[in-house]
Amino acid sequence: MPKNARAVRDWPLWEIFIRSDHGLAHKHVGSLHAADATMALQNARDVYTRRNEGTSIWVVRAADITASVPAERGAFFDPAEDKVYRHPTFFTVPEGVKHL
């Protein structure tokens, strides 16, 4: 799309990851534009934690993320499907045993 004078260069896109209070891992919550990492962190606070959603924020430049290619999905993810032992439900827990 041709750009005219009005569309000056936009700030780069950042992906935002937030960890909430509950001890969970950082979770992708969305993206935003910022001139640099400092501003991305500040903007993430203002955009994505307006309702006290988070206690820790990671920002990553969208261009720096390498994503798997959908066509390779089989080769990339199938091996993990064999490792059923990695999933807790693989193990049967003897009756009466708790807190596992």
Binding site: W11, H33, V47, R50
Partner: peptide
């Protein structure tokens, strides 16, 4: 000047 700044 930019949407993020409206929020901030």
């Amino acid at each position: 000047p930019i949407l993020e700044e409206d929020l901030a």
